[in-house]
Design a protein around this nucleic acid. Structure first.
Lengths: 210, 210
DNA sequence: TATTGTGAATTTTTTCACAGCC
DNA sequence: GGCTGTGAAAAAATTCACAATA
């Protein structure tokens, strides 16, 4: 958490969405887009998009709009997406294996280099040409495969232990699917996806609308 | 979006997390907890938790804390979680089937009553005692199974069409895993989970820390 | 004329601090 | 003495509105 930290966290969550649509526009051969039109695609509004982009510099042209390819490039670079990154999945259950097979990661440059599990029934088996490794070997695998991001898909009871181990290997970014609030020091960034929490939130709003 | 709408959206996202830990405490037989201790478990702070709960009423006892079971009950009731809810999954790919098998949903009272797909190779097959239905039958299935929440796990290209159809059946709450910003009228609530966006966000923070 | 970039205003969320109650 | 509930203060995010410029 240092120099770039003046960029609001919410902006960071929106930039990848802009990027997705910019890449789509580029594929369609559209050279330029206005903040209003891009925001409409991405589900936001013009002023907000312009404010978001203003944190990266003056990337547009007044009276014209944004160069689609150039803006995509700038966002990619800013977010460190202009190179491949190595990811490990800890937990080879249903969700872990579904994520391993998910096409969207590789397309964005995230290479799943390892999947690990405690279950010796699973260890040694192959999914998508990747051997399931024993969690025992976690530290070694992270080092050897130069893992930068870990995805935790273990049962809740195991998640904190796994988190402690990967953090002590120097990993600072975690995507956690286990339904526990991980306790980590505050230079570690955890993104939490809790599937049943999402349905519970929807449950609340359903009672308002229905 | 009517009466209860004065409760901040962020509060709604935190209540299910409090509820998770309250249920855990109840299982352990702990009768009472302070805002400070519960917030610590849930990854927040005392004042914020108290402010969150204050929107539901005066649920604690000054000088004492919160009755664990009673607070769990109040939150459940407030969020409409005190009864079963029927869910459909549209898209029987890797992710859709992983979600179908996910234990966490049933535990929280969300029953997956239907899973649908366009692929006729899949239609008619069974997963977890549930027949994969043809998306053709979407409207009928939603009605017959009294579906209240839909989970979209189709490819991006299909998601908007599916969303339009389920909304026209009266569904007002959607959990969308397809990487598209769904365009729906504003009484419809969409929760978006975009897996590669999450990794892209982490990518940014990694460049700050590492 | 069209559209960006940005200070200022507004709204939302978080934090603070303390009165009120057990 | 300990802990909640909450109004007030502070911080963060969003929206507005308009000068700047192609």
């Amino acid at each position: 958490m240092k120099k770039k930290k003046m960029v609001p966290a919410v902006t960071i969550t929106r930039l990848p969405v802009y990027l997705r649509y910019l890449n789509e526009l580029a594929r369609k051969g559209i050279p330029v887009i206005s903040s209003h039109d891009l925001a409409e695609l991405a589900g936001g509004n013009g002023p907000q998009l312009r404010k978001d982009l203003s944190f990266l510099g003056e990337l547009g042209t007044r009276g014209v709009g944004y160069d689609v390819k150039e803006l995509a490039h700038q966002i990619s670079k800013f977010m460190g997406l202009d190179r491949e990154q190595s990811v490990a999945i800890i937990g080879a259950g249903k969700l872990g294996t579904a994520l391993l097979r998910y096409k969207g990661f590789a397309e964005k440059g995230f290479k799943i280099r390892a999947i690990l599990d405690t279950d010796l029934q699973k260890v040694g088996k192959k999914i998508n040409d990747l051997l399931i490794n024993d969690v025992e070997n976690l530290e070694r695998v992270i080092k050897e495969e130069k893992i930068e991001i870990c995805i935790i898909t273990t049962p809740a009871s195991e998640a904190q232990k796994v988190a402690d181990r990967i953090v002590s290997c120097g990993i600072s970014t975690i995507l956690n699917f286990a339904p526990v609030s991980l306790k980590v020091s505050d230079e570690i960034v955890v993104r939490q996806i809790d599937l049943s929490v999402e349905l519970q939130i929807l449950s609340f709003y359903k009672t308002l609308t229905g």
